[in-house]
Design a protein around this nucleic acid. Structure first.
Lengths: 242, 242
DNA sequence: ATAAGTATACTTGTATACAAGTATTATAAC
DNA sequence: GTTATAATACTTGTATACAAGTATACTTAT
């Protein structure tokens, strides 16, 4: 899978991944970052040529991204939807919905083990911050929320998360990378906020949890526009150029 | 796609469908009905042979069903998860979650058009009942809930629904077919309950909505066990017989 | 110049071929 | 009989080939 430009998705996360996964992750990043603009029509053949792979993994990628609602499969070609502001708000709705649900379950459980696990992840995030490793930080951030969701052992809620996760991951990845360069001081706040979240779980305090969840969202959301602007400038229809 | 046994999934719903969709729908029905027992290991090659198609559409089907959480893709072979009682409850959780969310949006909208649409669907359901058309009834039942969800125009909530829908559809289909034979009187209650749901939307009455939603679930849930028992007897590992 | 029809270059969906890897089974050594 | 090794029959993932259908562009007729 020779690439014309450098990859947006961390290669170290794809060590054991199939070609299909690689294409999926990379394409997703290009779409969410705005490198491939909304409205672009993707062709299986062209993508296969661009990535120097066959149509099989590309088809797979398109199917996955269609289920994630970032592209729309049509009769001829896949239309890029991307992430509009409305989409981001919708993702937030869903996260709020499922994490609230999860919290309701957590208050009826023993959360000591979970809290311990979350504390560990938080420590990792702190280290990642010190070493300015945006990708590692993002990984731990996503893991943080996934760990909470997994704790209630609800396969269908996990299913929703699994569908949401890749887009969230890409979004966080892009957001964090941008901020390590520009707004390093943000990370103190993010860490603090996660501490608050752990505290809410430990104390089983609903309001605190909702508050930190909102803040957590504002953290990502606030930067998304900036991110897009910078990305849009960097790349004006780089791929799919006829 | 020559079939050894008659198909569980309504053929008239697959008129314009691809081979991949056909395989997906049929396999899903066989799994949910219990015809393919939980724990069975599915092989792409074997399935392709059984359905007399190539591996391509089978692979597609397995990917889809894995995202629906009714099978689990492993290194070698796909393990059938099926629907345990826990799974059904989980699906209920999710439905309650999203339909409650939807309702919160609806109370802030003009629902006259939606109510009109729902009334139409309800009339269709009544006709289907009179003519004892379980499949048509199921179709309208699913459409009823989808119509409500679509009304709020929330692509990510719709995304969750789209992931849930096929399993719901299969479940309802099997449940309704069983009841048309055994418990015809149930349908009056189901219709009444849907009327209640419409009423709740019209009156924007949260409690009434939750109540009818719960009843609606109990309607399906109550019958699932019976359904399984009858199905299990009918079919003891019909497919995948080495 | 315009309209209709045909040719061509795309598109997707399915089948098949191939490669790399993993269980299983059989065989051989002890 | 048990263990280790080798052969075989699977598995998935990817590439390629092919068929059917659709949009575009060109040609031809009016």
């Amino acid at each position: 899978m020779a690439e014309p430009k450098e990859l947006l998705y961390p290669e170290k996360w794809l060590l054991k991944a199939s070609t299909g996964d690689r294409v999926t992750c990379e394409l997703r990043m290009r779409i969410i970052s705005g490198m491939i603009e909304s409205g672009t029509i993707l062709s299986e053949n062209k993508l296969a040529a661009d990535f120097a792979v066959s149509r099989s993994p590309v088809r797979e990628a398109l199917k996955v991204m269609a289920s994630e609602n970032i592209i729309r499969l049509e009769r001829m070609g896949a239309v890029v939807i991307g992430l509009t502001e409305k989409e981001i708000e919708e993702i937030y709705d869903v996260r709020l919905l499922i994490e609230t649900f999860v919290f309701e379950r957590l208050v009826r459980m023993d959360v000591s083990e979970l809290v311990r696990e979350l504390s560990k992840i938080l420590e990792m995030m702190k280290v990642a911050t010190r070493y300015e490793d945006a990708d590692e930080f993002s990984f731990q951030d996503v893991l943080f929320h996934e760990t909470i969701i997994r704790a209630i052992n609800h396969s269908h809620i996990l299913m929703i998360w699994n569908n949401l996760k890749p887009v969230m991951e890409s979004l966080i990845l892009l957001s964090m990378r941008a901020r390590f360069k520009e707004k390093y001081e943000d990370f103190d706040r993010i860490i603090k906020n996660h501490e608050l979240y752990i505290e809410a779980i430990k104390a089983k305090d609903r309001d605190l949890m909702i508050e930190s969840l909102h803040q957590n969202f504002d953290d990502v959301q606030g930067k998304v526009e900036d991110l897009w602007m910078s990305q849009q400038i960097l790349s004006k229809g780089v791929e799919q150029n006829d």
